[in-house]
Amino acid sequence: MSRLPLDALPEIDTPRIPPAKRRGFATWFASTGWRHLIGVALVIYAAFPLLYVLSASLNPNGTLLSSNGLFSTVGFDSYVRLFDNPQRPFAAWFGNTLFIGLTTAAASVFLGALAAYSFSRMRFRGRRFGLVSLLVVQIFPQLLAVVAIFILLTTLGDVFPALGIDNQLALIMVYLGGALGVNTYLMYGFFNTVPVEIDEAAKIDGAGHARIFFTIILRLVAPILAVVGLLSFIGTTSDFVIASVVLVSPENQTLAVGLYQYVSEEFTSNWSVFAAGAVLAALPVMALFLFLQKYIVGGLTAGSVK
């Protein structure tokens, strides 16, 4: 078989692709540039308060007016003064905040999950009325019941001292009663997304409601548990009104109530110490958010049913 020489092959005209035209600044800004501008503006708007508080905590002068310049002077005198004041025990406030916040978050998640599982998987008389009641109760803010809470805890303290005024357990019970309704309603919607076939398959194998709940359902609803726990922890650690009413003695107070003492009387001289305490108070919330981020981002129900 003879082969044709290369010069005898017919020439094929290939269309030439014209080079891409370089877009001008006006075209780029009209299409995508304005989005970058808005994003940078929002980042600056969100980061400025954080930088200002951090700069104020590192300013050894300690006054409000001298903290206007960001990082003009840097020192750790405010953090030293924060832990060297025996009349204002910051370490005790920090420990009380962690204890109350973590206990309230864990109890809110557990009790809310139990109630949500009951409303989602069981059928009983008064189920619909109970769901509507939980929703209606949340319309009224908890701050409206501050006087009633104070009178109730004062009366209970005469019978059960652990549930009286100036007791951390009493404050935890108040937080649980106020957040149980909304947490249950949030979890109820997420529990309904879990396929019922998983429960039916487990019941065929002889599992009861308790085993299904603790070994199967809790693992599948981990994202909503993480969200509810994080929101409960943030709301508890940042609360001031109810905590200031229930907790009276300085050694039992939380960070929100204790740090207010630095700016309530001498507003200008203790601003740097107050900012240092605020920076340290934000660390547990940030650490908990980073720890629960993997549960918040991804859902665990994918692939659970074959």
Rank of each mutant, 00 (worst) to 15 (best):
M1V: 15
M1Y: 11
R3Y: 13
L6D: 15
A8L: 13
A8R: 13
L9A: 15
L9V: 09
P10I: 01
E11I: 14
D13W: 07
T14R: 12
I17A: 07
P18K: 10
P19S: 13
A20T: 14
K21L: 14
A26R: 15
W28A: 08
F29I: 14
W34K: 11
H36P: 02
G39T: 06
V40D: 03
A41T: 08
Y45Q: 08
A46M: 13
F48D: 07
V53S: 03
S55Q: 05
S57E: 01
S57H: 02
L58R: 00
L58C: 06
L64G: 06
L65M: 10
S67K: 01
F71E: 02
F71K: 07
F76M: 12
F76C: 09
S78D: 01
Y79M: 00
R81Q: 09
R81T: 03
R81Y: 09
R81M: 13
P86R: 10
Q87H: 14
Q87T: 12
A91I: 15
A92K: 12
A92H: 11
A92L: 14
A92R: 14
G95Y: 06
I100D: 03
L102M: 08
A107M: 11
S108F: 04
L111P: 04
L111Y: 05
G112V: 01
L114H: 07
F119T: 01
F119D: 02
S120A: 12
F124K: 05
F129P: 10
V132F: 15
S133I: 09
V136W: 04
V136N: 04
V137W: 05
I139D: 01
F140A: 15
L143V: 12
V146S: 09
V146P: 02
I149Y: 08
T154Q: 10
G157C: 12
D158E: 15
F160P: 03
P161F: 09
G164I: 04
D166C: 03
N167R: 15
M173L: 15
L176Q: 06
G177C: 05
A179H: 04
A179I: 11
G181C: 10
T184M: 13
L186V: 11
L186G: 08
M187Q: 05
G189R: 08
F191P: 01
P195Q: 07
V196T: 14
E197R: 02
D199Y: 06
A201K: 00
A202W: 02
A207G: 06
F213I: 00
I217W: 05
L220P: 02
P223E: 03
P223T: 08
V227Y: 05
I234M: 10
T236Q: 00
I242R: 07
V246H: 01
V246C: 03
V246L: 01
V248H: 13
V248R: 10
V248F: 10
S249H: 05
P250C: 07
N252H: 13
L259F: 05
Q261C: 03
Y262K: 03
V263N: 02
S264P: 06
E265T: 13
E266S: 08
E266D: 14
T268R: 08
W271K: 00
A275I: 00
A275D: 02
A275P: 04
G277K: 06
L280I: 14
L280C: 04
A282T: 10
A282S: 14
L283G: 05
L283W: 09
V285A: 13
V285P: 00
M286F: 14
L288V: 06
F291Q: 03
F291I: 12
Q293R: 14
Q293K: 10
K294E: 12
Y295F: 11
T301M: 15
A302N: 12
K306G: 10
